[in-house]
Design a protein around this nucleic acid. Structure first.
Length: 893
RNA sequence: GGGAGGUUAGCUCAGCGGUAGAGCGUCUGCUUUACACGCAGCAGGUCGCGGGUUCGAUCCCCGCACCUCCCACCA
């Protein structure tokens, strides 16, 4: 029995648990011969809470998994969580501060890492349960954690392999340094934001006196570390200046003027200050010209001793103000103007990133990128939607070395050791920790204190989740995976790098399809953010409207566009759909139980085998539609068009099944016209369509579908492993479809007329249908009781010519219809409406007539098109004639 | 500076060479014994602008405008 009240909370988790307990989420459930279908979950942060973006990804993945599972595939969807180095460290640090007032340094590294581990352990279950709440059918017996032993082994193997192939190296480079996170960042972790700032002009007097050079800069504080001024070699304004020396204001140092083509003569004053220690461009220029490098800003974001006693210890932005003041005092400011500066900000802390020279570990990824691109070019991995391939290609082509070391405590340690002599020892893949220096055999060795970039473990995910580098049975069976579903925002961070790792370490790309979805935004299309307060929590939505509704909403929204406007109202809308399904099932249950007649048992009769040929038109039509809907859903899912699949289902179930079929079948099942046997046949169809609809729905709404199948057929649990409906060629019935379309068309026209003319619903009308004698008219004749019921008709007359003087005449898809209206004057509004309609028809007909009069159209357009056009014209003229007849009647009345 | 995507009904979006579609919303009727999270019905669109190709363009091509986003070390 289904309760009158639809309450998803009462059954959702019960079904989830039943399915998980039954072992359905393990690929073994599909038998040893089933073809694998594999996905790896993009691991959410251990410490986080699932957001809508996750909900979207998990929903789409689960639709795929459940659908493929029902198709008999051995589905393995591997769940996992990410230790999320920098994010976790920051969260734990903040918590520590709040609780005890201590910093991680107060605690010490070992204790702090232990604290992080505790946190991660404590949160891991939460996040996994949140994934469960969405209905995700992951195999929780294979959960991975990016910092567990297996994954650590993979990270170490990857790094040592790269190192010994000369692809990982340690070097002093200009890097992105975040002073507040106190770590280096990769280029990807830096956001460039245009901000308004100032371009300051500063005068550098010549050492020998007699003038000055004016330099434009956005960062006056770095002048303390200037080691040259530069001009373009062919800039005649400054010809002959190279080699002269100028005084760096406020420091008294003198520096040379150099000529270097990196200077853009059109920018600023055409003279550039060169600060090799604090600007990537200048760093290169410095190397080219053998310039000294003076680091005046330290890793803490404060001025160093080299900046001079007056500035040492000052925050870099305070130093800027002081420098400007001091320049004013020295009368060396030459003005300023506002200027848009592309500021580099830390993705995590939003702090302005400082370019600093530092010794770090890098991976030269260009060779890996080459392999990856070769694989994607060969179609080993397909991007969906396809334009993302270009974005990926572009990035791969211009790829720069990846800085993989981080000055954090929480993460994978770098397997590199240093001897007192400064030599580096990295063990060979598979080897243990070294005891002595590989070069000079000296000890003791000190391990590198840094950890890897979190993505250095993530990029191995498709490999490491199956135990790589070990040759495990899972690896053999499930690598490469079938598809990856993730947001386009991590196409570089993750997708591209995984392809590199897969093609490099294994030789095969890690997934067949990379499905990139858009970003979830709020209802108004604005980015969700805590500060705006427009964040929608998917788990709250699940509690309020049911996970089924949330999933369905996300599927519908995941069209081709980039942004998904998600909000409460929409989820509520699709909850209505779930409710509709629920109520349709309640109705069906009633109908089926009535069929059990004397038996009176609560269990509805099992569906009898359907003998299509013995069925009536209405039954054949709905089965034909069901078959079409199955085809549509399957095709859409093959193409990863979750929106189309969901819409096809929605449309079929609501419009065709509920509004169409159920309404047509009601009088038949309740009336006395049909024999018990005929009713049973229809009941069997009703049940079959509903059961199949629930199966089609199951990947999207895995809970209501089970709950209803249980009530209807006692197979709620098995539904997850039931064969997914496919189109049935035997059920294709264009004849039935035509008849039903006409019946529904006529019904709509009559209802419409009733509404237009303000006729009461209770009043029965007389309807004439003009059709040439033939199979169609005989079919329609057979549906007179149905028509009468649906359109409230007292009599229906069908003949080739219905001649009811004064009756209203129209035409619906080729059939003339004649409605005898009760004596009622046409109001002037009615007449106007009629005239407007006629005018539209006439204009339409005129256009078509013109087209048909065009000889080149007749000569060049395909015959079928010409024929259809002629038919259109005929129909328009027919309708036009009938409606103007009504107008004449109106005038006469 | 490069690149990608967008511009279709009040809103959110599908469609993409033969007379414009959906959901939601608006409006008008409905206690029609599954469902008001409902039923029935109406209204609502120069498919951003200008050219071109074509018998025919919302759809293809070329410009333009505006919006979004990504990449990029220019002071």
């Amino acid at each position: 029995m289904l309760d009158k009240n639809f309450d998803p909370a009462s059954f959702e988790m019960r079904w989830y648990k039943a399915q998980e307990d039954a072992g359905f989420f393990r690929p073994e459930a599909s038998g040893p011969d089933a073809r694998p279908y594999t996905l790896v979950i993009p691991p959410p942060n251990v410490t986080g809470r699932l957001h809508v973006g996750h909900a979207l990804g998990r929903s789409l993945e689960d639709v795929l998994c459940r659908w493929r599972r029902m198709q008999g595939r051995a589905v393995l969807w591997v769940p996992g969580v990410d230790h999320a180095g920098i994010a976790t460290q920051m969260v734990v640090e903040r918590d520590l501060k709040e609780r005890t007032g201590q910093s991680r340094h107060d605690l010490g590294r070992e204790a702090f890492v232990a604290l992080c581990r505790e946190w991660a352990e404590a949160r891991r279950g939460d996040i996994l349960n949140q994934i469960r709440r969405l209905g995700s059918s992951c195999d929780f017996s294979r959960v991975y954690y990016t910092l567990d032993e297996t994954r650590s082994r993979a990270v170490r193997h990857a790094f040592t392999t790269l190192y010994h192939q000369g692809l990982a190296y340690r070097a002093e480079r200009m890097v992105n340094w975040c002073p507040s996170c106190a770590t280096v960042l990769s280029d990807l972790e830096v956001n460039h934001v245009e901000s308004s700032g100032h371009l300051y002009s500063i005068a550098y007097p010549f050492e020998t006196g007699g003038g000055e050079l004016v330099v434009a800069t956005t960062r006056p504080e770095t002048m303390l570390g200037d080691t040259a001024l530069a001009v373009h070699p062919r800039d005649e304004r400054f010809a002959g200046l190279a080699g002269r020396r100028v005084i760096v204001p406020l420091t008294g140092r003198t520096i040379p003027v150099i000529a270097d083509a990196f200077v853009d003569p059109k920018f600023g004053t055409g003279v550039v200050k060169v600060t090799p220690a604090h600007d990537p461009n200048d760093f290169e220029a410095g190397k080219r010209n053998g310039l000294e490098s003076i680091a005046v800003i330290g890793f803490d974001g404060r001025m160093t001793a080299l900046a001079g006693a007056a500035y040492a210890g000052l925050d870099r932005f305070d130093a800027r103000k002081k420098v400007l003041r001091d320049l004013d005092a020295a009368a060396l400011r030459r003005g300023e103007k506002s200027h848009l500066i592309p500021l580099a900000r830390c993705q995590r802390s939003d702090t302005i990133v400082e370019p600093l020279v530092s010794l770090q570990w890098f991976v030269s990824v260009a060779p890996l990128a080459e392999k990856a691109v070769a694989a994607t070019d060969a179609g080993e991995t397909r991007f969906v939607p396809e334009p993302w391939k270009k974005t990926y290609d572009e990035w791969m082509r211009n790829i720069r070395d990846w800085c993989v070391s981080r000055q954090l405590w929480w993460g994978h340690g770098i397997p590199a050791w240093y001897c007192p002599g400064g030599h580096v020892t990295v063990p060979k893949p598979g080897e243990g920790d070294p005891d002595a220096c590989a070069m000079c055999a000296e000890g003791p060795l000190v391990r590198d204190p840094d950890v890897f970039d979190t993505w250095f473990s993530s990029w191995l995910m498709p490999l490491s989740v199956f135990g790589w580098p070990e040759k495990t049975p899972d690896f053999d069976r499930y690598y490469p995976t079938s598809v990856l579903v993730t947001g386009f925002d991590i196409i570089f961070f993750w997708v591209a790098r995984m392809i590199m790792a897969g093609t490099f370490f294994d030789g095969r790309a890690p997934f067949g399809d990379a499905v990139l979805h858009g970003l979830v935004r709020d209802e108004k299309g604005q980015k969700m953010s805590k500060t705006k307060g427009n964040v929608v929590d998917p788990l709250d939505m699940c509690d309020e409207f049911g996970a089924d509704a949330v999933r369905f909403t996300l599927a519908v929204l995941s069209g081709t566009g980039r942004d998904l406007p998600f909000g409460k109202a929409r989820v509520a809308g699709y909850r209505s759909f779930a409710t509709k399904v629920w109520n349709a099932a309640r109705f069906a249950l009633q109908m089926l139980e009535e069929g059990a007649d004397g038996a009176g048992g609560p269990a509805p009769a099992p569906p009898q085998a359907i003998d299509f040929a013995s069925l009536g038109t209405v039954d054949r039509w709905i089965l034909s539609r069901l078959s079409e809907a199955s085809a549509d859903v399957n095709a859409a899912l093959e193409a990863y068009r979750f929106d189309e699949a969901a819409n096809a289902l929605y449309q079929f179930f609501w419009s065709d099944f509920c509004d169409g079929y159920v309404e047509m079948v009601k009088p038949a099942l309740r009336g006395a016209e049909l024999s018990a046997e005929e009713k049973d046949r229809t009941r069997a169809v009703l049940k079959r369509v509903l059961l199949d609809s629930l199966a089609l729905l199951h990947p999207f709404m895995p809970f209501v579908s089970c709950e209803i199948r249980e009530a209807l057929n006692g197979d709620g649990l098995r539904l997850a492993m039931t064969k997914f409906p496919e189109p049935n060629a035997e059920w294709k019935d264009d004849g039935a479809t035509e008849v039903i379309a006409l019946v529904r068309g006529i019904v709509t026209r009559v209802r419409n007329l009733r509404a237009e003319r303000g006729l009461p619903q209770t009043e029965s009308l007389r309807l004439g249908i003009e059709l040439p004698v033939g199979p169609l008219s005989r079919e329609i004749q057979r549906h007179v009781p149905l028509l009468s019921h649906l359109a409230r008709l007292s009599t229906v007359e069908i003949s080739s010519n219905v001649n009811w003087p004064g009756a209203y005449r129209d035409v619906v898809t080729g059939a003339g219809i004649v409605v005898e209206l009760p004596k009622k004057e046409f109001s002037s509004e009615d007449r106007e409406k009629l005239e407007r309609d006629l005018e539209k028809l006439r204009a339409e007909a005129e256009k078509i007539r013109a087209r048909l009069a065009d000889s080149s159209f007749l000569a060049r357009a395909p015959a079928a098109v010409v024929e259809r056009t002629q038919q259109q014209l005929a129909e328009l003229e027919e309708r036009s004639a009938r409606l103007s007849g009504n107008l004449v009647e109106a005038a006469g009345a």
